[in-house]
C-alpha cells in the first residue's frame, strides 16, 4: 500500500503533464493553449519538489528542536521556474492580443483559413 502511495505521486505528476500536453496539442484556442502550458509547467514543479520531501522532515527553515529538513535545493530551482513560467505566459498573452488585433480571432484554425484566403 505504501509503495502504491509513493508511486501515486509520480502518476499524478504524469497525468498533469499529459493533460497539459493534450490541451496544448489538441485545442486550437490560444488562451486555452496557454493555460495548458501553465499546467504542463506546474506538473514539472511537482516532479522536482516531491523527490525532495523527506518523510518525517520539516520545511528547510533552521529552528531548534528540528533535525530532519527536506531538501532545499529543488525549492530554490522551482522558485526560479515559477517566475520564469509567468514571464513566458505574459509574453504569450501579449502575442495573443496582437494576433487578435491582426486577425480578429484567437483560434488556430481560423487564423490558418484567413492566411489561406
Amino acid at each position: 500500500m505504501n509503495e502504491f502511495l509513493a508511486d501515486l505521486n509520480y502518476w499524478v505528476t504524469i497525468f498533469l503533464l499529459v493533460g497539459g500536453l493534450y490541451i496544448i496539442t489538441a485545442h486550437g484556442n490560444m488562451v486555452k493553449k496557454l493555460v495548458g502550458l501553465a499546467i504542463f509547467q506546474s506538473s514539472v514543479y511537482l516532479l522536482f519538489i516531491s523527490p525532495g520531501k523527506i518523510l518525517g522532515g520539516t520545511a528547510p527553515i533552521i529552528a531548534p528542536g528540528f533535525d530532519v529538513y527536506s531538501n532545499p535545493l529543488p525549492h530554490v530551482l522551482i522558485l526560479t521556474a515559477i517566475v520564469v513560467g509567468v514571464a513566458t505566459i505574459a509574453l504569450g498573452l501579449a502575442i495573443v492580443v496582437r494576433i487578435h488585433e491582426a486577425y480578429g480571432t484567437i483560434e488556430d484554425d481560423e487564423v490558418h483559413d484567413l492566411e489561406a484566403d
Binding site: 516531491s50 520539516t58 520545511a59 527536506s70 525549492h75 522558485l79 515559477i82 509567468v86
Partner: peptide, 15 residues
C-alpha cells in the same frame, strides 16, 4: 504538504 512553503507562497501569489 511537501514542505516547500516558499514555493507554495510563490505559486499562490504568482500562479
Amino acid at each position: 504538504v511537501l514542505d516547500a512553503v516558499d514555493v507554495a507562497m510563490t505559486e499562490a501569489a504568482v500562479g
